[in-house]
Amino acid sequence: MPAPHTPPHPLLAAHGLAFSRDEAPVFGPLDFSVDTGEALLVQGGNGAGKTTLLRVLAGLLRADGGTLTIEGVAADAASRARHIAYLGHLPGLKADLSALQNLHYLCGLHGKRARQRPDAALGIVGLGGFEDAPLRTLSAGQKKRLGLARQWLSPAPLWLLDEPYANLDLEGIQLVNRMVEAHLREGGAALITTHGAYAAPPVRTRLLELKRPAP
């Protein structure tokens, strides 16, 4: 029986990755990787650099040191755009557009997963019936669900999820877990920041623990 195919490089790998703000270290140096079919949980207390790390990986902040590769090639803006979908604390949505208009707008910018529709994605995240609701009329939890719908529509294989369980009830937490599980089952990967493993998705996971640098 032939051995299963193993990619020659992890989807994303960091070596010696570090970031400082005003000459004070925020995190690093860090060595880690995440591959298709797995989730990397990033844990740490307030100020440990979890959000900053995801913003560096997404290309929103520039690292002070180390290397970052995507499928074995140095990460640049184009490769990040193809491979990474980032869901941060802020929704990144337009307040005067409706829920459905926001999804169409973002799919036009970033592309769309094959065989998926924005209206169907709203139903998946529990926002069926809110297609025409302006974003500014939605609650914090509904905005988080709309962000999750955009995440589901993204064709990028690597999800960066910054505290995806925030502002969600138990049903919402279970929704995130089902979405991550389905994404990994289809060959994707996820890097998830969380304060604790109580909400970790039921998938193959590894842990990256961040600690506040010593003064």
Rank of each mutant, 00 (worst) to 15 (best):
P2S: 12
T6K: 09
L11T: 00
A13V: 14
A13P: 03
L17Q: 11
L17T: 07
F19P: 00
S20Q: 10
R21I: 10
D22F: 14
P25I: 08
D31Q: 03
V34I: 14
D35W: 02
A39C: 15
L40D: 03
V42D: 05
A48Q: 06
T52E: 04
L53M: 06
V56P: 02
A58Y: 13
A58E: 11
G59D: 09
L60P: 05
L61H: 09
G65Y: 08
L68F: 09
T69R: 13
I70C: 13
I70A: 03
E71S: 12
A75N: 12
S79H: 05
R80W: 11
A85E: 10
A85D: 07
H89M: 08
K94A: 07
K94T: 04
L100E: 02
L100V: 01
L100G: 00
H104N: 02
H110N: 10
G111M: 00
K112P: 09
A114V: 12
A121R: 09
L122T: 05
L122Y: 13
G123Y: 13
V125H: 10
G126F: 14
L127I: 03
G128M: 13
P134E: 07
L138A: 03
K143C: 14
K143N: 06
G147H: 11
W152T: 00
W152Q: 01
P155I: 07
A156R: 05
P157S: 04
L158R: 03
L158F: 01
W159I: 02
E163V: 11
P164G: 13
N167W: 05
D169I: 13
G172H: 06
Q174I: 08
L175R: 04
V176W: 07
E181N: 05
G187E: 01
A190N: 09
L191S: 04
L191H: 04
I192Y: 05
A197N: 10
A197T: 15
A199M: 05
R206A: 02
L210K: 00
K211W: 05
A214M: 07
